[in-house]
Design a protein around this nucleic acid. Structure first.
Lengths: 114, 114, 114, 114
DNA sequence: GTGGTCTAGACCACC
DNA sequence: GTGGTCTAGACCACA
């Protein structure tokens, strides 16, 4: 696994897991590797993987069976999309609006293409 | 000079030159280095730099004096902004619109933020 | 295919393609040969053909379907004529005017023949 | 000496002589080589050179001293320019006018640049 | 298979 | 010296 320098590694790991879910490589109730195993495999500290799993758990993408491991939730894909939508509304849309204004693109031009 | 892997080198060089123009480090009629000198300095093949200069010439950012070298045009900054706007309208806006639809973001939510 | 020495090969190839379009031998959405096939057929380097295709793409005469090949645009003929007119106004007209002045041909003599 | 295929060799030789006169390499009363010598030097049949000299004599660019050779006339440069002007009016101007009309360039656009 | 990019090195015309 | 063009061959992403 390779990492960009401009985004925390734990989020990049989360992205790759989400992508595998969206692509159907991981389905509901599939088990994902332990933090130690996953960390060793991709060469990062287990704590980093733990933070990834923590984040994904908060987003309802995976859940923990105590003493067993982490599993993909049944509605993981839906939750990922919901999360992406939030991000889109909070981050991308304002950035997009700012850039449009900076370049002098009118509202009308944008609305036309929606 | 460092290069990302996700964008052609010749365009990254073009970007860096455009940025120096937008920041006022390069002004109209300033000479920019020869393809050979620039290539040697940043460690890329002269042909790659030539491609950069060719692209910027097409965009009206620089022009060539035969046998002398390349020079920044008087209206370079304006042409850079015009080019950026075109790119935005042709590439980013459609991608944005597509993503918005995919995530189920309504037109109204977008229009509100413009 | 034969080449004059006074014009770059890649532009001569472009001209021949444009002519075939203007003569109706190539129509909108027709596929043109791959850079490798065309290069082999006419005996030039594929890179040279690629430059031709790049130029024609900039002029809106052909477009690329990724992984498939290049195709003639619907409005190729119109774009070719527009391009020819631009060239005429920017290059040939000034050269003509300069030569007329150099030879002492009066405006009136020219206007008479227009 | 090299020759294009699209123009008679004897005229190409004439052009080269005229150019040398216009550039001052040959002046009034300078002797030019005999048809045999010139033909041998540039690798063409003496008859071809003779035709060149015949043509240039008609145009008042050179003249013959019987038994001596050919010499540049005093007003050679002026005669070359007069000849060029005639050619311009008879050939280039009509071709130019035709092309302008073909491309839909208006008279006004042309007159502006004269 | 397709084109896109990059390198290395060559030759040319122009200044 | 300058850029412009062309070749040969390489590697890549995408389909």
């Amino acid at each position: 696994m390779e990492f960009d320098s401009n985004k925390p590694i734990y989020l990049q790991i989360a992205d790759s897991i989400c992508n595998r879910i969206l692509h159907g490589e991981l389905k509901g109730e599939d088990r994902i590797p332990s933090v130690r195993e996953f960390g060793a495999r991709i060469g990062v500290n287990p704590n980093t993987v733990a933070r990834t799993y923590d984040t994904l758990t908060d987003q309802g993408v995976i859940y923990n069976k105590r003493g067993i491991g982490f599993f993909v939730t049944e509605d993981a894909a839906a939750n990922i999309r919901r999360e992406a939508k939030e991000l889109f509304l909070k981050e991308e849309l304002p950035a997009f609006a700012k850039k449009a204004q900076l370049l002098g693109v009118s509202k009308e031009d944008i609305i036309k293409q929606l």
